[in-house]
């Protein structure tokens, strides 16, 4: 059975990418199961989707714990443990990262033995909305790495899954996917089918009986204040609001009053400062500022600048 996990952020087309791969495998006469995985998160939060495909009906369910192929559409997720990109990887897991860096760069950086293949991002993108073309790169790349999906099936799957969009959008996605597909011809079929876990030799597990604990311990209550600060929701941001000091009139703090995450505070001078560890990038502040003093920048560019890359 092929087990594929695709990582990205909410809004980047990861669910659709999983569905396209699933549909393409289905067109190739595979039994398929595909699903997105998300909870209460929103746009920008790390999410993933997964696809299983085999010649027999798929009985496995839920999150893929032992992937044969891990596809990373957004390289910024690699540094976020909560994204779970490395969950359950083994020596024979193939990594595909949509990145302008080389595979050597990532192999050194990550210190893992797995095969890593990279392909540059489709083109420089400015907004999160352009980002979904990266997902199309991933779809084409995954198709080739599996080695069992024809160009025709890939194209048909994209047409099917994107049918609600305009023709030009569909064509652009097909073009980007097929380009990635062509570029990886030398890696065709490097992803191997995984087998089930043997009932003869498996890693034993340690069940525990949770001890009885009184309600002072075992009630689902949070006693400490400020714990939500520990959730770094700033990692969900794909667009960053930036206050232009020149233009800010130090009004009545309209931006901060409307921020749903209380992520704008006033410094000693009474000037608004954005807490980027928690700002989710919803851009409500941008809309509220009467002076249009808050501008928008693409997060991935900012991150690169910060690293001096």
């Amino acid at each position: 059975m092929y087990r594929i996990r695709l990582h990205g952020r909410g809004g980047q087309g990861i669910k659709t990418a999983g569905r396209i791969l699933g549909e393409a495998l289905f067109l190739e006469k595979y039994e398929v199961q595909d699903a997105p995985r998300y909870g209460a998160e929103r746009r920008g939060a790390p999410i993933f989707s997964y696809v299983r495909a085999g010649k027999k009906p798929i009985n496995e369910r839920g999150i893929i714990l032992h992937p044969g192929l891990v596809v990373v559409a957004d390289e910024t997720l690699i540094e976020i443990p909560a994204a779970g990109v490395f969950q359950g990887i083994a020596e024979n897991t193939v990594f595909f990262i949509c990145s302008n860096e080389s595979s050597d760069f990532w192999r050194k950086r990550l210190g893992i033995d797995s095969q890593i293949i990279t392909l540059s991002q489709s083109e420089e993108y400015d907004t999160a909305l352009d980002f979904h073309y990266n997902s199309s790169v991933c779809v084409g790349a995954a198709g080739r790495l599996l080695g069992v999906i024809s160009k025709e099936s890939l194209k048909q799957a994209i047409e099917e899954e994107l049918s609600v969009f305009e023709k030009t959008v569909i064509e652009k996605n097909i073009e980007i996917s097929l380009k990635a597909y062509d570029e990886l011809s030398s890696y065709e079929g490097i992803v191997k089918r995984g087998v089930g876990i043997s009932a003869d030799s498996y890693r034993r597990l340690n069940w525990v009986e949770p001890p009885f604990e009184g309600a002072d311990i075992s009630a689902p209550a949070i006693y400490d204040s400020g714990t939500s600060e520990l959730a770094l929701t700033g990692l969900w941001r794909t667009l960053r609001p930036v206050v232009n000091k020149e233009l800010c009139a130090l009004c009545w703090h309209l931006c901060g009053s409307f921020c749903p995450d209380s992520a704008i505070y006033l410094d000693e001078d009474g000037a608004p400062q954005i807490d980027y560890e928690h700002c989710k990038g919803c851009l409500i502040c941008v809309m509220q500022c009467p002076r249009r003093a808050i501008s928008v920048e693409a997060e991935h560019k900012k991150t690169k600048e910060a690293k001096g890359a």
Partner: peptide
């Protein structure tokens, strides 16, 4: 539970 301050509270 550590983050939630369960022990600390007790």
């Amino acid at each position: 539970q550590g983050i939630a301050g369960v022990e600390k509270k007790n």
